[in-house]
């Protein structure tokens, strides 16, 4: 179990999470839901180990391999989509996930692709990396409804635990995720 006890996190100009206590199960999917600015991304960054907590305790992530789909695509602009995925796994896995994400020509450079395609390449990379926990920050950004459903059907239940940030409950349902509201 991943446990956050009375966690506070902030930036120099503002506190984002204050005295937050949460428990995530070892398996399944959990969707973090809240309006913008309530700290969904910050919480995912804390879980990824990219943001240090100011107060409280975080446990249960020791020795866990975490894959993180950032809010931005963060693809290397000078290598092909295929290479971007290969760099975190191997060519077989890269090809598999790019096919699952319906990328027609993986030899293209990121700037030659549409926003939706870049998002799916970033998703393919996060999926190909492998590990124990998958963190997804707005995974369906820029994807139309039909594509969201197809992508969700491929990525759900692959990792033991998936934690994602979403804007509406429909996205959480697509992933079969239990909703945790950060604004309540």
């Amino acid at each position: 179990m991943i446990r956050l006890s009375h966690v506070s996190v902030g930036y120099p100009d503002k506190k984002v999470l204050e005295n937050l206590s949460l428990i995530f199960p070892d398996s399944g999917a959990v969707a973090l839901m809240a309006p913008s600015g309530y700290g969904k991304t910050t919480l995912l960054r804390v879980l990824a180990g990219l943001k240090t907590i100011e107060a409280g305790e975080l446990s249960g992530l020791e020795n866990k391999k975490i894959s993180f789909l950032f809010q931005e695509d963060r693809l290397l602009p000078w290598v092909s989509a295929e290479k971007n995925v290969e760099l975190v796994s191997d060519s077989e896995k890269a090809r598999h996930w790019l096919k699952q994400m319906e990328i027609p020509d993986a030899r293209q450079l990121p700037h030659e692709m549409s926003g939706g395609m870049r998002r799916r390449v970033a998703l393919a990379r996060a999926m190909a990396f492998g590990g124990d926990v998958l963190l997804l920050d707005e995974p369906f950004k820029g994807l139309d409804e039909a594509l969201r459903e197809r992508v969700a059907s491929h990525i759900r239940d692959v990792y033991p635990l998936t934690i994602l940030s979403v804007h509406d409950s429909a996205e959480a349902e697509l992933m079969g995720a239990k909703i945790v509201r950060l604004d309540s």
Partner: peptide, 24 residues
């Protein structure tokens, strides 16, 4: 900085960082 963070998150080796992030 975003790409550096990505490379760290996806555990790029030192060589991969030099070859695919810093050099280009």
């Amino acid at each position: 900085g975003d790409l550096r963070e990505m490379a760290r998150m996806y555990r790029f080796s030192r060589w991969k960082k030099i070859r695919y992030l810093y050099a280009p």
